[in-house]
Design a protein around this nucleic acid. Structure first.
Lengths: 144, 144
DNA sequence: CCGTAAATGCAACACAATTGCAGCAGCAAC
DNA sequence: GTTGCTGCTGCAATTGTGTTGCATTTACGG
């Protein structure tokens, strides 16, 4: 339960993987971000670090596989990634909000996602609730 | 309220647009489909009609803009389109189910989408509930 | 310090979707 | 029926996002 207090490098090593600069940098970024970041977002921030785009894709891929992060499909056909809280129960009970103005995607942990009743024979493995609208900042600034 | 009884051509004209073969064909297809179709799905069916891919994209785009259809983003990053029922109140109260096995997307009209409580300052314009799992057919056929 | 397997960088590819522009056609006016 | 305008269509090229192959580098255990 205390994995979050480990340093990124130690957390990576505890998974049996190598603590490379790219992985550490991406983990740090996702840890401090309070919203889901796209590959492009990360690329911009990490530009100075000189990581290749493919490396970024592979790191993100690896994080999702390892359960460190979650991948959300955006309405704009882009993948967005958010850190998986180590003590969080099930991630499908977790809504995302995309602001139409600034394009940012927020994780709404306080919004519960109830698993709906499905037709006969259907079974659900994941439920994703995506809300589109105006965030607190753009709703005020943008006006109508 | 009775728009559904109009022919596709008349329905198009009632929107002030031109009733072209491409639009009529796409509308007919979406009317008869009980699931959300991707651009590729439509392309295959309309292959014989000789419509250009771009025309298809533009027709679908126009339908979404006109409120005739609804665009859903698939987990595979492909757009899927379903006809907007003319008498439906708000289309955002409508869930979609994607089968992991066959890849088809079903419209679950019977699943209500409750508009959640958002943080202070946030306003929602659309709510999309995407469920992933196994559909009635693949759940039985695929077994475990 | 060395060796090895994993991770990276580079380049090319795959795929969905978009844009520009020339030509055609639906619909209205006559 | 003919004419004309506007908007729709077709083609080709471009963008944007993500993937794959392969040679090189690097983290980490010995």
């Amino acid at each position: 339960m205390n994995e979050a207090s480990l340093s990124p490098a130690d957390r990576i090593r505890s998974l049996g993987a190598r603590a490379t600069p790219a992985r550490i940098a991406v983990m740090r970024l996702l840890e401090t971000a309070e919203r889901a970041l796209s590959h492009h977002d990360l690329e911009l921030v990490l530009e100075a670090s000189g990581f290749d785009r493919v490396t970024l894709y592979r790191v993100l891929d690896w994080m999702v596989e390892s359960g460190l992060a979650h991948r959300v499909t955006d309405a704009q056909r882009v993948f967005r990634f958010s850190l998986a809280a180590p003590d969080a129960p099930a991630h499908d009970r977790h809504a995302h909000f995309r602001c139409e103005d600034c394009g940012k995607v927020f994780c709404l942990d306080e919004v519960p996602v109830t698993r709906p009743n499905l037709p006969e024979g259907f079974s659900s493995s994941a439920v994703e609730l995506s809300i589109t609208g105006h965030c607190g900042h753009c709703g005020k600034a943008g006006g109508a």
